[in-house]
Every structure is written in C-alpha cells, then in structure tokens.
Amino acid sequence: MSANSSLIQVDNVSFNFHGLKVLQDISFSIFPGDFLALIGPNGSGKTTLIRIILGILKPSSGRVVLIGQELHQFTQWQRIGYVPQKAILLDPYFPASVREVVAMGLISLKRFPRLLTRQDESSIDKALDRVGLKGLKSRRIGELSGGQQQRAFIARAIVNGPDVLFLDEPTAGVDADTQTRFYDMLAELNLKEGLTIVLITHDFGVITKHANKVACLNQRLFFHGTHEEFCSSQTVQDLLRGEHHLVCHRH
C-alpha cells in the first residue's frame, strides 16, 4: 500500500521536554483497517506520541498528516475518536449521565451553537447499543462499573462514526474478564465495521489475539510491522528477553 493511502502519517517526529529527549525521529504510517498495538515500557513515549498525533502536544520537529491534511490545518475531528488514559472517573459523584457523556462525542459534527437534534438522540442510542449500554443511559456515569464506564467512553468516541479510534491503556484497573470482553468488542468494531484502531497497551494477549500491526517504542521506534513479523522478529525477542514469553496465536 502506498504512503498516500495512509490514514495517518508520522514523519521524523521528535519531542523534547525540559531538555529530555522523549521521542526521537519517529516515522510510521497507519492504514485503514489497521488494528495497531503501540507497546513499550513505562516512560517510553507512547502517550506523548498519541498526544502529538492528536494535536494536544506540538512536536519539537517533524510532521503529522491526518487523513491527508497537515495536522495544523486539520479540521475534520469528527473522523477521529479518542479514549484517553485514566478514562475511568475518579469522582463517582460527577454529575454526568451516560447519555450526556456520549453526546459530548457529537460536538465535532455540529455547528455553533451545537444543539442536539432527534437524529442525534438516535445516534446516541445506537452507539450505546453497540457497546451494550442502552438500558443505562440515564444512569450517572460514576454509578457504572469500571468496565461499563470504559464502554461508555468507547460509545462517546464512536458516536460520530470516526475512521480511526485511539485508545490509551483503556483497561487499566479493570478485571481480566471485563478486559477480555472489552477487547473482543474492539476486535468486532475493527473486523466487522472496518474501524481503524490504535491501542496503547501492555497486554501481550491483545497483541497476539487481535492486533494486525505492532509498533514497539522506547524513545525510538524499534519495531513497526505486521503481527507475524512481530512474532518472528529477533529485535522484539531480544527486547523482551527476560520480561515476557511471547506466544503468538490466533483464534
């Protein structure tokens, strides 16, 4: 596939913070339909890279092209979905209903003063249905379990039908069964609906089971390739030696 057909193109991106080199010369592309797992040790720059791609941080050098547009000119935010790190609410009494949280995802589609229509209400119902939370839309978000909250945030991220969904360690603090169901739901969105997914994770089970592309980061991009290349890469084996026993399998 040519570089022109990529959804996201990262070219020679570096990022320094207080003289510290957080990211150095990162280049890679993300293509439609990819399920890209972005892995690396703590402090390796994974979240920083995602925040640069999403325009939250400015790179020290290099460029990002989002859906054919330079990042600083990009306006089609409705085509991007994002579930940030620590999406689970720390304040259980925060007065936001599940419906209101999902409605926030529609903002990028709407023009000032961004009032919601009946069609929007139907989009909210549909998104909640897709993540299995339709019956809970009047609940306060803090009343949901950690796993249900994660699904509500996914519903918010997909309610406007984005092309690509970024997730930053979405299952931190969630039990193993809920994690499995959550990743199965992501895989379904990727395979059945063609949603491109970029997932920061430490969970090697997800990589081997669902991801078709893997990027391995530690200030520099050590590896970027397909799942099969990842499993057979000597670089990866050397990098993970002593930390993980990599078993690659597909269901």
Binding site: M104, I107, S108, P113
Partner: peptide, 23 residues
C-alpha cells in the same frame, strides 16, 4: 452559557478529549 453549553460541559468533563474533538 446557553450558547456554549455543550462545549463548556465537554471542557469541564474531559478537557483533553474536548480538544481532540475540535473544541
């Protein structure tokens, strides 16, 4: 407040995601 209600709500709840939604 009424005119910017949706933006203020999103900004209050999750400023980082609000930014990536073009707010």
């Amino acid at each position: 407040i009424v005119l910017f209600y949706q933006e203020f709500v999103f900004l209050t709840f999750d400023p980082e995601s609000a930014r990536t939604s073009g707010v």
